[in-house]
């Protein structure tokens, strides 16, 4: 993930990605995923390029990007910690755990620590309901979390 790319590069990379994927059936979501994988977020300047190449309006692409919670319009911290907030995790003390993580990091959901180390995001079910409470750190899953376990996770991302 390269967070320091110029506008021009974003344009060229976007065009590469779109050109490579536009022949898919219904290519918009795969393209946006690829763009987010490339830049860490979906830069605004990609949208008109995608729109033009896919024969869509800018408005449509904007509508799609803002509909899906996965697509971010700005970069995240170096780590992304997703805490499950759904019922199965609630039944195992997920809410208290979330409060603890928030206070350990000093941020609320959808925020990034000032040092840019970690972004905290809620997630509604990771399919780990039999290992609740669960979390995902940078794509790696963690289950049966307790106060100690989250302390370790926080220490890991803070390192």
């Amino acid at each position: 993930m390269n967070l320091h790319v110029s506008s021009r590069d974003i344009g060229e990379r976007t065009l590469d990605i779109v050109s490579g994927m536009k022949s898919l059936e219904g290519p918009l979501l795969p393209i946006l995923h690829e763009i987010q994988a490339e830049f860490g977020y979906v830069p605004q300047e990609c949208l008109p390029i995608i729109a033009r190449e896919l024969n869509l309006s800018r408005a449509e692409v904007h509508g799609v990007v803002t509909f899906y919670h996965d697509y971010r319009d700005h970069p995240t911290g170096r780590h992304v910690l997703k805490l499950c907030r759904a019922e199965a995790c609630q039944s195992m003390g997920g809410d208290q755990l979330a409060e603890r993580v928030k206070s350990l990091l000093g941020i609320d959901f959808h925020q990034t620590t000032l040092d840019g180390a970690v972004t905290l995001e809620p997630v509604y079910c990771l399919g780990l309901c039999s290992a609740a409470p669960a979390a995902m750190l940078d794509g790696e899953v963690h289950g049966r979390l307790d106060a100690d376990a989250v302390k370790d996770l926080v220490a890991e991302v803070r390192a």
Binding site: S57, A59, E60, H62, G63, T66, F67
Partner: peptide, 10 residues
């Protein structure tokens, strides 16, 4: 047929 409007967010 212009598609200039959308719903943003959800």
């Amino acid at each position: 047929g212009t598609f200039a409007l959308t719903i943003e967010g959800r």
